[in-house]
Design a protein around this nucleic acid. Structure first.
Lengths: 213, 213
DNA sequence: TAGATTGTTAATCGATTAACAATC
DNA sequence: TAGATTGTTAATCGATTAACAATC
């Protein structure tokens, strides 16, 4: 309980959870570390070791009960209850995020959407009416929202981040390519597809290079 | 040259590059490992060590020439020339991706867009006309495209992945929450915002917990 | 020259993995 | 009981970091 959990373990838990939820959807009841390892590309020994940080909930000779494991990991991550999200930016990207299935599957619900464009205010995305940006602080406090998503044009990113921080948000997902500054107590996550592309590209050039020469 | 580069180094290079390009845009000429470390949250010693894997291009007492470093890292990653992308799915998400600034900044250009909805075919997103899905293989071969992006509804994800693979794509970015299967020679990248959220959530619950008790 | 910062070594630290006894 | 798979130890491996001589 008091033991410090390595960063790597916490990074892998969401991947386990994702696969486990899919398995549960397929009515599979138990899974071995070997099978889970295949599906997540993680070494089975590592999976077992990761899980023992939080107790021992496997059955020797059988494997792990999927329903139990899902619940346990959700509780560990704090994903065992619904989290409300505020979305800033009601353009294409904002609409796509609001309609994203994966969010709901893991207990994340967008309950407030903001846009500075008067033409967009009042329109609906799904069931949520778009509010003007000036109402951001009030609405977030009312709803007790701690997570914000930035889906506005790059120029506005820093300003929106500041507003979210001022409104008490603790986690920010930044979808712009801009490097945004936030105070230390706020966790900023940049979801930049380009970073991933560049990373993968390295291995592609190597492999092609070998094949070509 | 023949030395094997650790995975971690390759993961950090895109982060360095991103910051360096922003600095270059601000007309900064040189940067020290200390400053670069601040901006990327990486230990300065680590940055210096990372860079020596590829040669030594800093000046003692001065730092690194930004223009040179940008070029070097781009060449290492294979990002020193333009890469064409194929985008499948012309909905909100697809439109957002096609209009994403960050891609162009790093030499990625969407040059082909596909959708199975006849109503969308022929419309334009930016300068690109949406093509029917049946033309995917032909167009990709014509243009020599090696990178594909899946931005379709979850149900269609696996099918699209199969088509992209069949058309010779080597890197796939999957924007659906579905676990897609691809052959070993294809690199699949799932950009799932939920995984990041879940990860961050863990630390949030801990910190709030401490504050609350 | 004096100050700054790199390149590089050597020490530390932590994460990964193989192996196997425990046990379902 | 026999087979399977966990939980856990111990060994390995690699990555991170501090420190400092080299040098701009």
């Amino acid at each position: 309980m008091t033991e410090r959990i390595p960063e790597g373990v916490i990074e892998r838990l969401p991947a386990y959870l994702n696969v486990l939820i899919q398995l549960r959807g397929d009515d599979v009841l138990t899974v071995s570390s070997a099978r889970l390892g295949e599906l997540t590309s993680v070494n089975p020994a590592q999976i077992r070791r990761d899980l023992t940080h939080f107790g021992s909930f496997g059955k020797r000779g059988v494997g792990y009960d999927i329903a139990t494991l899902v619940e346990r990991i959700q509780r560990i991550l704090g994903a065992d209850h619904v989290h409300r999200l505020a979305l800033v930016g009601a353009g294409n990207l904002g609409s796509a995020i609001a309609g994203y299935n994966g969010l709901l599957q893991h207990g994340f619900v967008v309950t407030a959407i903001f846009d500075s464009d008067p033409a967009k205010v009042g329109t609906r995305i799904g069931e949520i009416a778009v509010q003007p940006a000036v109402e951001l602080a009030t609405t977030l406090h009312e709803q007790g929202i701690r997570i914000g998503i930035i889906a506005v044009p790059p120029e506005a990113a820093q300003e929106v981040a500041d507003q979210l921080v001022a409104a008490g948000v603790r986690i920010i997902l930044n979808y712009t390519p801009v490097i945004v500054r936030v105070p230390g107590e706020v966790t900023l996550h940049n979801t930049d597809p380009v970073q991933e592309l560049l990373h993968t590209l390295y291995y592609l050039s190597r492999r092609e290079g070998v094949a070509r020469v």
